[in-house]
Protein backbone atom coordinates (compact mmCIF):
# COMPACT_ATOMS: atom_id res chain seq x y z
CA UNK A 1 0.00 0.00 0.00
CA UNK A 2 1.32 3.44 -0.87
CA UNK A 3 -0.02 6.54 0.78
CA UNK A 4 0.53 9.81 -0.97
CA UNK A 5 -0.38 13.30 0.21
CA UNK A 6 -1.00 15.88 -2.48
CA UNK A 7 -0.50 19.37 -1.10
CA UNK A 8 -1.05 22.69 -2.77
CA UNK A 9 -2.36 26.17 -2.28
CA UNK A 10 -6.14 26.51 -2.30
CA UNK A 11 -7.47 27.13 -5.81
CA UNK A 12 -4.41 25.77 -7.57
CA UNK A 13 -6.37 22.89 -9.09
CA UNK A 14 -5.09 20.40 -6.59
CA UNK A 15 -8.39 18.56 -6.09
CA UNK A 16 -9.01 18.33 -9.83
CA UNK A 17 -5.53 17.00 -10.39
CA UNK A 18 -5.59 14.60 -7.42
CA UNK A 19 -8.88 13.15 -8.61
CA UNK A 20 -7.48 12.79 -12.13
CA UNK A 21 -4.39 11.03 -10.81
CA UNK A 22 -6.54 8.78 -8.62
CA UNK A 23 -8.71 7.98 -11.63
CA UNK A 24 -5.63 7.30 -13.73
CA UNK A 25 -4.09 4.98 -11.14
CA UNK A 26 -7.44 3.22 -10.66
CA UNK A 27 -7.78 2.78 -14.41
CA UNK A 28 -4.49 0.87 -14.34
CA UNK A 29 -6.25 -1.68 -12.17
CA UNK A 30 -5.18 -0.57 -8.73
CA UNK A 31 -7.46 -0.21 -5.72
CA UNK A 32 -7.56 3.45 -4.76
CA UNK A 33 -8.84 5.53 -1.84
CA UNK A 34 -9.02 9.32 -1.95
CA UNK A 35 -9.44 11.38 1.21
CA UNK A 36 -10.25 15.06 0.85
CA UNK A 37 -8.60 17.07 3.63
CA UNK A 38 -10.00 20.47 2.82
CA UNK A 39 -12.81 22.09 4.84
CA UNK A 40 -14.57 22.78 1.51
CA UNK A 41 -15.22 19.04 1.25
CA UNK A 42 -15.32 19.01 -2.56
CA UNK A 43 -12.18 17.04 -3.29
CA UNK A 44 -13.87 13.96 -4.68
CA UNK A 45 -16.80 15.47 -6.63
CA UNK A 46 -15.20 14.65 -9.98
CA UNK A 47 -14.85 11.03 -8.97
CA UNK A 48 -18.37 10.57 -7.67
CA UNK A 49 -20.11 12.09 -10.66
CA UNK A 50 -21.19 15.00 -8.50
CA UNK A 51 -22.64 12.91 -5.75
CA UNK A 52 -21.78 14.67 -2.54
CA UNK A 53 -19.84 12.64 -0.03
CA UNK A 54 -21.04 13.37 3.48
CA UNK A 55 -18.10 14.98 5.26
CA UNK A 56 -16.98 12.96 8.26
CA UNK A 57 -17.16 15.97 10.58
CA UNK A 58 -20.66 16.77 9.43
CA UNK A 59 -21.68 13.16 10.02
CA UNK A 60 -20.22 13.21 13.53
CA UNK A 61 -21.86 16.53 14.25
CA UNK A 62 -25.26 15.11 13.35
CA UNK A 63 -24.95 11.62 14.74
CA UNK A 64 -22.44 11.94 17.54
CA UNK A 65 -20.50 8.87 16.38
CA UNK A 66 -20.03 6.55 13.42
CA UNK A 67 -20.09 2.76 13.50
CA UNK A 68 -19.53 1.83 9.89
CA UNK A 69 -17.47 2.89 6.88
CA UNK A 70 -20.59 2.50 4.75
CA UNK A 71 -22.07 5.56 6.38
CA UNK A 72 -19.31 7.89 5.24
CA UNK A 73 -17.87 6.39 2.07
CA UNK A 74 -18.96 7.22 -1.46
CA UNK A 75 -17.87 4.88 -4.24
CA UNK A 76 -16.59 6.73 -7.24
CA UNK A 77 -15.14 6.06 -10.68
CA UNK A 78 -13.47 2.62 -10.94
CA UNK A 79 -14.54 1.90 -7.37
CA UNK A 80 -12.41 4.56 -5.84
CA UNK A 81 -13.41 4.87 -2.17
CA UNK A 82 -14.01 8.57 -1.54
CA UNK A 83 -13.97 10.29 1.83
CA UNK A 84 -14.21 13.93 2.79
CA UNK A 85 -12.98 15.21 6.16
CA UNK A 86 -14.97 18.43 6.04
CA UNK A 87 -14.53 21.10 8.63
CA UNK A 88 -15.97 24.02 10.52
CA UNK A 89 -18.44 26.68 9.61
CA UNK A 90 -16.22 29.44 8.25
CA UNK A 91 -15.07 31.81 10.96
CA UNK A 92 -15.24 29.38 13.81
CA UNK A 93 -14.00 26.02 15.10
CA UNK A 94 -10.78 24.25 14.28
CA UNK A 95 -10.22 22.87 10.78
CA UNK A 96 -6.89 21.21 11.51
CA UNK A 97 -8.43 19.05 14.17
CA UNK A 98 -11.13 18.00 11.71
CA UNK A 99 -8.50 16.17 9.70
CA UNK A 100 -7.06 14.47 12.78
CA UNK A 101 -10.52 13.36 13.85
CA UNK A 102 -11.29 11.98 10.41
CA UNK A 103 -8.08 9.98 10.36
CA UNK A 104 -8.69 8.59 13.81
CA UNK A 105 -12.19 7.55 12.85
CA UNK A 106 -10.97 5.82 9.69
CA UNK A 107 -8.43 4.01 11.85
CA UNK A 108 -11.09 2.97 14.34
CA UNK A 109 -13.24 1.67 11.52
CA UNK A 110 -10.22 -0.19 10.14
CA UNK A 111 -10.47 1.41 6.74
CA UNK A 112 -7.02 0.33 5.56
CA UNK A 113 -7.58 -3.28 6.63
CA UNK A 114 -11.10 -3.41 5.18
CA UNK A 115 -10.44 -1.90 1.76
CA UNK A 116 -6.80 -2.94 1.52
CA UNK A 117 -6.08 -0.28 -1.10
CA UNK A 118 -2.98 -0.17 -3.29
CA UNK A 119 -2.92 3.61 -3.31
CA UNK A 120 -4.30 6.19 -0.90
CA UNK A 121 -4.37 9.82 -2.01
CA UNK A 122 -4.77 12.56 0.57
CA UNK A 123 -5.83 15.81 -1.02
CA UNK A 124 -4.68 18.46 1.42
CA UNK A 125 -5.11 22.22 1.53
CA UNK A 126 -1.61 23.58 1.82
CA UNK A 127 -2.19 27.23 2.68
CA UNK A 128 -1.82 26.60 6.39
CA UNK A 129 0.66 24.04 7.63
CA UNK A 130 -0.30 23.89 11.31
CA UNK A 131 -0.38 20.65 13.27
CA UNK A 132 -3.73 19.51 11.90
CA UNK A 133 -2.99 20.13 8.23
CA UNK A 134 0.38 18.46 8.65
CA UNK A 135 -1.33 15.36 10.03
CA UNK A 136 -1.44 13.57 6.66
CA UNK A 137 2.36 13.50 6.53
CA UNK A 138 2.79 12.14 10.03
CA UNK A 139 3.79 8.67 10.97
CA UNK A 140 1.28 6.06 9.89
CA UNK A 141 -0.30 8.22 7.21
CA UNK A 142 1.16 9.42 3.92
CA UNK A 143 4.74 8.35 3.32
CA UNK A 144 5.14 10.41 0.19
CA UNK A 145 4.31 13.98 -0.65
CA UNK A 146 3.50 15.57 -3.96
CA UNK A 147 3.32 19.33 -4.21
CA UNK A 148 1.09 20.82 -6.85
CA UNK A 149 1.95 24.36 -7.78
CA UNK A 150 1.85 26.88 -10.56
CA UNK A 151 4.46 29.50 -11.22
CA UNK A 152 2.38 32.09 -9.39
CA UNK A 153 4.09 33.74 -6.47
CA UNK A 154 1.59 32.76 -3.79
CA UNK A 155 1.40 29.19 -5.04
CA UNK A 156 5.17 28.89 -4.84
CA UNK A 157 5.18 30.47 -1.41
CA UNK A 158 2.71 27.85 -0.17
CA UNK A 159 4.74 25.14 -1.91
CA UNK A 160 7.83 26.31 -0.15
CA UNK A 161 6.08 26.19 3.24
CA UNK A 162 4.90 22.68 2.58
CA UNK A 163 8.42 21.67 1.57
CA UNK A 164 9.71 23.05 4.88
CA UNK A 165 7.12 21.11 6.87
CA UNK A 166 8.09 17.91 5.09
CA UNK A 167 11.75 18.62 5.79
CA UNK A 168 11.03 19.19 9.47
CA UNK A 169 9.23 15.92 9.66
CA UNK A 170 11.75 14.05 7.57
CA UNK A 171 14.16 14.03 10.50
CA UNK A 172 11.62 11.84 12.23
CA UNK A 173 11.43 9.39 9.35
CA UNK A 174 8.08 10.65 8.23
CA UNK A 175 6.90 11.41 4.72
CA UNK A 176 9.40 12.09 1.97
CA UNK A 177 9.05 14.27 -1.09
CA UNK A 178 7.97 12.35 -4.15
CA UNK A 179 8.06 15.36 -6.39
CA UNK A 180 6.40 18.45 -7.77
CA UNK A 181 3.70 18.76 -10.41
CA UNK A 182 3.42 22.00 -12.31
CA UNK A 183 -0.18 22.89 -12.99
CA UNK A 184 0.35 25.57 -15.56
CA UNK A 185 -1.21 28.98 -15.25
CA UNK A 186 0.80 30.35 -18.13
CA UNK A 187 2.72 32.78 -15.96
CA UNK A 188 5.75 34.30 -17.57
CA UNK A 189 8.85 32.08 -17.23
CA UNK A 190 6.73 29.48 -15.46
CA UNK A 191 8.96 26.51 -16.28
CA UNK A 192 12.03 28.41 -15.19
CA UNK A 193 10.44 29.37 -11.88
CA UNK A 194 9.40 25.79 -11.24
CA UNK A 195 12.75 24.33 -12.18
CA UNK A 196 14.34 26.74 -9.80
CA UNK A 197 11.93 25.69 -7.03
CA UNK A 198 12.44 22.00 -7.73
CA UNK A 199 16.17 22.45 -7.53
CA UNK A 200 16.06 24.42 -4.30
CA UNK A 201 13.64 21.94 -2.83
CA UNK A 202 15.97 19.12 -3.75
CA UNK A 203 13.24 17.10 -5.37
CA UNK A 204 12.12 16.29 -8.89
CA UNK A 205 9.52 17.40 -11.34
CA UNK A 206 6.96 14.67 -11.81
CA UNK A 207 5.34 16.37 -14.70
CA UNK A 208 3.72 19.39 -16.23
CA UNK A 209 -0.02 19.70 -16.67
CA UNK A 210 -0.75 22.20 -19.40
CA UNK A 211 -3.82 24.40 -19.38
CA UNK A 212 -6.52 22.58 -21.25
CA UNK A 213 -10.15 23.52 -21.70
CA UNK A 214 -11.17 19.87 -21.57
CA UNK A 215 -10.43 19.81 -17.87
CA UNK A 216 -13.12 22.42 -17.32
CA UNK A 217 -15.51 20.77 -19.78
CA UNK A 218 -15.44 17.48 -17.90
CA UNK A 219 -15.34 19.19 -14.51
CA UNK A 220 -18.69 20.75 -15.42
CA UNK A 221 -19.94 17.19 -15.87
CA UNK A 222 -18.36 16.22 -12.52
CA UNK A 223 -15.85 13.97 -14.21
CA UNK A 224 -12.12 13.78 -14.54
CA UNK A 225 -10.66 13.89 -18.06
CA UNK A 226 -9.52 10.31 -17.49
CA UNK A 227 -13.09 9.21 -17.14
CA UNK A 228 -14.38 11.64 -19.74
CA UNK A 229 -12.03 10.83 -22.58
CA UNK A 230 -8.81 8.92 -21.92
CA UNK A 231 -7.64 9.57 -25.48
CA UNK A 232 -7.32 13.30 -25.01
CA UNK A 233 -3.81 14.74 -24.97
CA UNK A 234 -4.36 16.04 -21.46
CA UNK A 235 -5.53 12.61 -20.29
CA UNK A 236 -2.44 11.01 -21.72
CA UNK A 237 -0.31 13.58 -19.97
CA UNK A 238 -1.93 12.81 -16.63
CA UNK A 239 -1.65 9.07 -17.26
CA UNK A 240 2.02 9.63 -17.84
CA UNK A 241 2.43 11.41 -14.50
CA UNK A 242 0.36 8.72 -12.79
CA UNK A 243 2.71 6.17 -14.32
CA UNK A 244 5.67 7.96 -12.77
CA UNK A 245 3.95 8.03 -9.41
CA UNK A 246 3.22 4.33 -9.61
CA UNK A 247 6.84 3.73 -10.53
CA UNK A 248 7.88 5.53 -7.39
CA UNK A 249 8.68 8.87 -8.91
CA UNK A 250 11.30 7.72 -11.34
CA UNK A 251 10.83 9.52 -14.60
CA UNK A 252 9.42 7.48 -17.42
CA UNK A 253 8.32 4.53 -15.35
CA UNK A 254 5.44 2.53 -16.66
CA UNK A 255 2.66 1.03 -14.70
CA UNK A 256 2.18 -2.68 -14.37
CA UNK A 257 -0.95 -3.56 -12.46
CA UNK A 258 -0.74 -6.34 -9.92
CA UNK A 259 2.97 -6.05 -9.33
CA UNK A 260 4.20 -5.01 -5.93
CA UNK A 261 4.89 -1.32 -6.11
Amino acid sequence: MRKIAVYGKGGIGKSTLTSSLAAAVASMGYKVVQIGCDPKADSTLNLTGGKETVPVIEYLRQHGGCDSLDEIVTWGYKNIACFEAGGPTPGTGCAGRGIVTTFELLDDLEMFETYDPDFVFYDVLGDVVCGGFAMPIRKGYAEEVIIVTSGEKMALFAASNIRMAVENYQQRNYAKMLGVILNKRNVENEEELINDFVQRADTELLGVVPRDKNIQIYEDRCQTVIEGDPDLEISKKIMEIAGRIVAGGKAGGTAVPGEDT
Binding site: I57, L60, T89, G93, R97, G98
Partner: peptide
Amino acid sequence: KETHAITGDE
Protein backbone atom coordinates in the same frame (compact mmCIF):
# COMPACT_ATOMS: atom_id res chain seq x y z
CA LYS B 1 -17.19 17.80 22.51
CA GLU B 2 -14.60 17.34 19.84
CA THR B 3 -17.06 17.67 16.98
CA HIS B 4 -18.29 21.01 18.25
CA ALA B 5 -14.75 22.18 18.81
CA ILE B 6 -14.10 21.47 15.14
CA THR B 7 -17.29 22.85 13.67
CA GLY B 8 -17.64 25.83 15.98
CA ASP B 9 -19.54 25.75 19.20
CA GLU B 10 -21.30 29.07 19.59
